[in-house]
């Protein structure tokens, strides 16, 4: 559980610094806020996000994983990164 918390903190910090530039429509980022629905991330932002995940958590994001189920909210990201990290440990 501690690890999940660490992942979430890192992800939130990155999203806040990179995408939420204090814009008027995004006062708070909830766990399930959809980046797509709320226009938080743009298409090049997704690349930045993926590069950040790969570097920070030492994982490889495959083509097929570039889908909203994995990337479109803080909670989806935390779940995705946790699964990938667990997989990496087992490999």
């Amino acid at each position: 559980m501690a690890e999940k918390k660490y992942i979430e903190e890192k992800i939130r910090k990155f999203i806040n610094q990179t995408f939420l530039r204090g814009g008027e429509t995004n006062p708070g980022l909830k766990d399930h806020t959809s980046f797509l629905e709320k226009g938080i991330v743009d298409s090049t932002g997704v690349l930045e996000l993926v590069a950040f995940l790969e570097e920070t958590f030492n994982i490889t994001v495959e083509d097929e994983e570039l889908v909203p189920e994995n990337l479109d909210s803080v909670s989806n990201l935390v779940k995705f990164v946790s699964q990938k990290s667990d997989q990496a440990k087992m490999d």
């Binding site: 997704v46 570039l66 889908v67 479109d72």
Partner: peptide
Amino acid sequence: KTFLYPFEIIKTIIREKVTGFPGVPT
């Protein structure tokens, strides 16, 4: 809504049997 998750777009092209795909270099 937008072009965001690249693989999602690929899935849509295949699922809906898209015949025309307009885009910009980005």
